[in-house]
Simulated scan of single mutants.
Amino acid sequence: MTFPTLNVAALERVYAHIVANPEEWNQRYWHCGTSMCFAGHTVAMYGTANWSAPGDPGCDTFVALSTDDEDDLFIDEGERVIYVADRARHILGITEDEAAVLFHQNNTLADIRRIIDDLIAGARH
């Protein structure tokens, strides 16, 4: 399997931001008021967050950008959209399986640190 290029700088930057601003972190939600999960912080910090996709009260999709991978897009109320997790995994250079582990809603900050360390050490999934 060919793995995407891991964006270590982005992983570390997002993690450091969350550690420094724990009140802005809630792993259970992509975006809820002023708090976000790891994936939500990733897209917000890298300037690719457009939260208000049509018909998405849960804020888990974005209106598609021309830079989004066509394989990740789908149509919602006539608009091309992408899930937060898919955009975030492309920014971070991780696979779908790695994203499922890193973005899991029950992860603690300690879990996220361990997962990042494993990714950096080369334990790719």
Rank of each mutant, 00 (worst) to 15 (best):
F103G: 00
A123K: 14
T108I: 04
G55L: 06
S52L: 10
L102M: 07
D69P: 05
V84I: 13
D86H: 11
T95D: 00
A53G: 14
F62N: 13
D69K: 08
D118Y: 09
E70R: 15
A123M: 08
L92F: 06
I75E: 12
A110W: 05
S52Y: 02
R113M: 00
E96S: 06
D76R: 15
P57Q: 02
Y83F: 12
E70T: 14
H90C: 11
E98M: 02
I112G: 02
T108Y: 09
E98G: 09
P57E: 01
I75L: 12
V84Q: 08
A121M: 11
E70H: 11
D71R: 15
D71V: 09
V84E: 06
I115S: 03
E96Y: 04
R114V: 00
T95L: 00
A64P: 14
T67F: 14
R124E: 02
E70W: 07
R113Q: 12
D117V: 00
C59S: 12
D86K: 09
A110F: 04
A85G: 03
R114Q: 14
D71Y: 05
L102T: 05
D69M: 02
L65G: 09
G58V: 07
T61V: 11
I91Y: 01
I91K: 02
R89A: 03
W51G: 03
A53D: 10
I94L: 03
D68F: 09
T61A: 11
A88H: 07
A99Q: 01
L102S: 05
R87V: 05
W51E: 10
G78E: 08
D86I: 02
I115C: 02
L92S: 02
D72T: 11
D56A: 09
Y83N: 08
L119V: 05
D117M: 01
D86M: 10
V63P: 10
R87A: 06
L65T: 08
G78H: 12
R80Y: 13
F62H: 14
C59W: 08
Q105G: 14
T61W: 04
D68V: 06
T95V: 01
E77T: 10
N107Y: 08
I94C: 04
L109V: 04
R89F: 01
D72W: 03
R114E: 10
